[in-house]
Design a protein around this nucleic acid. Structure first.
Lengths: 327, 327
DNA sequence: TTGAAAGCGCTAACAA
DNA sequence: TTGTTAGCGCTTTCAA
C-alpha cells in the first residue's frame, strides 16, 4: 500500500526472534559463516528475508572499526576529466569489496574542505581527492586519520598524502612535436592561468620549440579571464598551428582561427569527439590514474608509511584538427 | 612527519579525560548546549581542538536513529543532465543541514540497485534517484524504509515513491512550434528508443504537426542502434528542419545535414553551447527539479503518506541552429 | 551545572 | 553448533 512505512527497521534481534535463535547466530548466518548448520542457516535467511532485514552498516562499522567505504572528493561533477578518474577508482574498489561514495565540492574550496570533513566523520577507510583545490593543510590533516591520495598536480605536496598525476611536460612535448613533424613552424601556445599543470605544459612547449630550432617563433599568450578574446588575439598574430592548454581553450582557438590552422588541446575530453573538426588532444590515462590512486590507498592501509608520488605518461590522440600547414 | 598516523582516533572519552570532565558533558559542550558553564565549555573545546577530535558520525547516527545524510543515486556521472539535478539537490539539502553523498550506477541496472542498497545500509535519511533505470520493485522496496523520490519519467510508478519529471510533450511542442513559426513545413523527427520520455516527445511532435496542418509532412525515424546512420537516412529524405529526441541525436543530424537545415535538440546539455552552429535545444529546469525532489523528501520525513508526482514545464532555448528555411 | 548509566545495532571473543 | 557477554563511540534520560 502506498505510503506505508514500518515504525521501525527490523534489526538483527528481530530476525533472531523470528527464527528462534540468538542474535550472534543470525550475524554469522547472514555473513555466510560455514560454522552454521544448514537448516538453521536457511531458517535465519528466510526470516531475514520475510522481515525485509538489511544489515546496518553504521553499527557494523562502529564495532569493526572500518566501514569498507572509500570516499571520493570531487571539485566538479560536470568535469568529464573527473568522472573518468572516478570510474577507475570504482573498478579497483569493486574488486576489493569496497563501496565508493562521492562528495561534491562544487568548485568551492571551502565547501571541498567541508565535504572532506563529512567523509572523515563517516569513517570512510580512505579518501581519493580529485581536485587541486584542497589546501595542503586540510589534506595533511585528513591524512593523519585515514589514507589520502590526491589525483592531480598539487601546488605543494602535503605530508602523508600520496599523489597521482600525469606528466604535463611530456604531454606538451608530444603535442608540439606532432605539430613540428607536420611541418609547422609558426606554432603558438595559448597558456593557462598559472597552475602547476599549465606552467609545466608551457615549459614543455618552450623546450620543444627550442629543440626544433624554433626558439624565435615562440609565442605564448595566457587565456586570462576572457578565453574568447585571448584566443582571438593569439590567432591575430597569424600562427599556422596552436597548442592550447586544454580542450576548452582549443575550442576557442578553433572558433576564431581560419580553416587550415592546426589546433591541439589537452585532456581529451568528450568534447574532442563532438566538435568539428574533431579535436586532436593529449590524453591523460584517467581511468588508470583512478585505479592507481586506489591501489596506493590500499597500500597505505596495508601499512606503508613513506609518501609516493606517481607520474603517468599521457598520449597524444590525433584527430582532424591537425594537418600539414597550407602552403 | 610523513606517514605518521596515531594508533587510534581520539574519542569523546579522550577529550573528557583531557578536560577532566565526564563524556556526557563533552557531548553537550561540543554541540553548544547552553546548559554548560562557559569556563568548562571553553576548556572542553580547547581539549578537543588540541587532540584533533572529530565526532564520529556513525556512532551518532546509531544512537539518534538518523544520519542527516541524503543519498543521490545516479545512472551516469558523465551525463551533465544528471549533475545539474545534483546541484539542485545540494542546494536544498545544504539549507536544511543535510550532507549529500552520491552513489554511481555506471549505466548498469544491477549496479544501480546494488548502490541503492549501499545507501540504505548507510542509513541515509532519504534517497533521490536520478535515473529511470532502477526497477519499480527495487524503488518500492527502498521506499518502505526511507523516503525515496525519483527524478525522471518512470516506465511505471512505484508505490510510495514520489517523482519529479519534465513535461516532454510540452517541450516537444515548443520545439516544433518554433520551427513552424520560422516558416518550416518539412519538419522531421529523429525519435528515441521507446522510453516513456522519447514516446512523449514524439507525441508532442505529431500533435503539433497536426495542429499546424502539416499532418502529411510527418516523418519519424528512430535513432535505433546506429545514430549516425539514422541521422543520415533522415536527412536524405530532404527535410528543411529536424526536431531530435536529444542533443546527441541533434548533433548527428547537424553533422549530416547540408547547411541551412534547422535542428532542435532536447536537454540543453553543455554540448549545445560548444558545437557550431550553437544548438537550439529544449531545456529542462534541472536545478529546480533537484530542489523540488529534495523538498518532497523532506515532506515525507515530515509525515506525508500520499504519493506526489510533479511535472515541470521545460523551455526552449533558441540558438544558431534554427533559422527560417532557405528559399 | 555536572555525572552515571543505559542503550543504538552490530561483531567478536569465549563458553557451553 | 549455538548462546552469552562485552563493548564500538556516541546521545540521552535521570540523579546528584
Amino acid at each position: 500500500m502506498t505510503g506505508t512505512r514500518p515504525r521501525r527497521r527490523p534489526t538483527i534481534v528481530d530476525v533472531a526472534e523470528a527464527a528462534g535463535v540468538s542474535k550472534s547466530l543470525v550475524s554469522l548466518a547472514l555473513r555466510g559463516d560455514p560454522g552454521v548448520s544448514e537448516a538453521t542457516g536457511a531458517r535465519i535467511l528466510a526470516a531475514a528475508d520475510r522481515l525485509g532485514y538489511r544489515s546496518n552498516r553504521l553499527a557494523r562499522g562502529l564495532v569493526q572499526g572500518r566501514t569498507m567505504i572509500l570516499g571520493v572528493l570531487l571539485t566538479d561533477l560536470a568535469n568529464p576529466y573527473h568522472t573518468e578518474v572516478v570510474a577507475g577508482v570504482e573498478e579497483a574498489a569493486d574488486a576489493r569489496g569496497f563501496t565508493v561514495l562521492l562528495a561534491h565540492g562544487r568548485r568551492d574550496r571551502k565547501r571541498l574542505e567541508h565535504q572532506l570533513d563529512a567523509l572523515l566523520q563517516l569513517n570512510v577507510d580512505g579518501v581519493v581527492v580529485v581536485s587541486s583545490w584542497v589546501g595542503p593543510r586540510a589534506l595533511a590533516d585528513a591524512a593523519r586519520r585515514v589514507p589520502v591520495v590526491m589525483v592531480g598536480r598539487p601546488r605543494e605536496f602535503a605530508p602523508g598524502v600520496d599523489t597521482v598525476a600525469n606528466d604535463d611536460v611530456a604531454g606538451a612535448r608530444a603535442a608540439v612535436r606532432h605539430l613540428v613533424e607536420l611541418g609547422h613552424t609558426r606554432i603558438a601556445h595559448l597558456s593557462g592561468s598559472g597552475s602547476p599543470s599549465s606552467r609545466s605544459r608551457e615549459e614543455g612547449y618552450r623546450e620543444t620549440m627550442r629543440e626544433a630550432g624554433l626558439a624565435d617563433e615562440v609565442l605564448v599568450r595566457p587565456v586570462g579571464t576572457d578565453r574568447e578574446q585571448a584566443a582571438g588575439a593569439l590567432v591575430a598574430a597569424g600562427p599556422s598551428a596552436v597548442f592550447a592548454v586544454n580542450d576548452l581553450a582549443a575550442l576557442a582557438v578553433l572558433d576564431h582561427a581560419p580553416p587550415g590552422v592546426s589546433v591541439v588541446g589537452y585532456d581529451n575530453t568528450s568534447l574532442a569527439e563532438v566538435v568539428r573538426p574533431r579535436l586532436s588532444s593529449v590524453d591523460q590515462p584517467r581511468a588508470v590514474m583512478g585505479t592507481l590512486a586506489t591501489e596506493l590507498l590500499l597500500e597505505r592501509m596495508g601499512g606503508r608509511t613513506g609518501d609516493r608520488h606517481e607520474v603517468l605518461t599521457p598520449t597524444l590522440v590525433v584527430r582532424d584538427s591537425t594537418a600539414p600547414p597550407r602552403p
